[in-house]
């Protein structure tokens, strides 16, 4: 129990730090640090989504970039049509309202995750990894060669989309918005994990046969988790497209799927705030080491390798000990 309390304290520190650093940057007049913190929050949001499937459900999806990209394109395409005043299709207009865009992004990612999950969950092990990869690659190559929305060149968002009461062009306000959404997603993760649904999911991960014997439908529970997971990652994609004001096929590249898994592992698989820590480490490496040496990926690779071989619990596992549950 002491370990659980330690994790609570640690989580509070992590969340407070993610708020305090950009707040300091706001005082110090360093807008780029705020942008980086927003990036951490949104990558963490995407990874919280994946953490539901991977951390709780043990489903190693190597294709979550698909939902990230679908979210990104939902934002890009709707904004594109809002900007040009042309309909998307069948007379449906574009929009620059984030709330609408988020709903569309989550709806579409959820639908695609439903289809992909229903087909992929029939397999397991390496086959599950590979089939999720295959679906993400389809999305990647489709966006790459489909000319209507920029193809390989990507799709710029000329004016950031809007949210009621928030000036999204100001880095600090956009950060607050992203931070709030991340907190909500973390809340959802905690609730799901504590609920009967979470218990069923973890029971299936550990022993599918026994779970089936006590009347849990492994397929239904896993599919539900997979869909929720895809929806959150899709939401993160839509918000990331607005942060960078750019959507491109790279959002669906297999390396993006890999990065999301890396984020989860660095922080701690299945841990509530693992994705936040992992995203901070990744962005930190990119920024700090990118400034000192052009070969920062070498160091990231070494740290990652060390983490896999010697510190499987990630940073949270190191600091808070083994997980209390699961």
């Amino acid at each position: 129990m002491a370990e659980m309390r330690r994790e609570y304290i640690l989580n509070a520190v992590i969340v407070a730090a993610l708020f305090a650093v950009p707040l300091w940057a706001l005082m110090a007049g360093e807008p780029f640090i705020i942008t980086l913190a927003t990036r951490v929050a949104l990558l963490a949001l995407a990874a919280v989504g994946l953490n539901i499937a991977l951390g709780l459900g043990g489903m190693v999806s190597f294709g979550h970039a698909l939902y990230f990209g679908i979210g990104g394109y939902a934002a890009g395409i709707l904004a594109h049509h809002a900007f040009s005043g042309t309909p998307v299709a069948f007379g449906i207009p574009g929009t620059n309202q984030m709330l609408v865009i988020w709903a569309v992004a989550m709806g579409l990612s959820g639908l695609v995750a439903l289809a992909v999950g229903a087909l992929s969950l029939r397999t397991s092990g390496i086959f599950f990894i590979m089939i999720t990869l295959a679906f993400a690659q389809m999305g990647f190559f489709f966006t790459l060669s489909w000319p209507a929305y920029g193809g390989e060149d990507g799709l710029p968002i000329f004016v950031r989309n809007q949210f009621p009461g928030v000036n999204t062009m100001l880095p600090w306000e956009l950060f607050l918005l992203s931070f709030a959404v991340l907190l909500a997603a973390l809340g959802l993760f905690a609730v799901l994990r504590a609920a009967r649904f979470g218990a069923a999911l973890m029971a299936i991960r550990q022993n599918p046969d026994r779970a089936a014997a006590v009347g849990i439908s492994p397929f239904g529970v896993k599919l539900t988790a997979f869909v929720i997971s895809g929806m959150l990652t899709g939401l993160a994609g839509a918000m990331m497209a607005d942060l960078t004001r750019f959507t491109s096929p790279a959002m669906m590249a297999w390396t993006m799927s890999g990065e999301l898994i890396v984020i989860i592992l660095l922080g701690g698989v299945g841990r509530l705030c693992g994705p936040v820590v992992g995203a901070a480490i990744l962005v930190g490496f990119e920024t700090l080491f990118g400034g000192w040496t052009e070969h920062w990926q070498l160091w990231l690779g070494l740290v990652l390798l060390g983490a896999v071989l010697f510190a499987r619990g990630g940073v949270i596992g190191l600091l808070a000990g083994r997980e209390g549950h699961g």
Binding site: V60, I261, V262, L298, G301, L302, L304, V308, R312
Partner: peptide, 22 residues
């Protein structure tokens, strides 16, 4: 498990690519 294998060999890609670039 497969997750560890994917991650460790993903890390190796980063290390070997940068090594060759150096």
């Amino acid at each position: 498990d497969h997750l560890d294998q994917v991650l460790a060999t993903f890390a190796l890609i980063l290390i070997l690519s940068e090594g060759v670039r150096i």
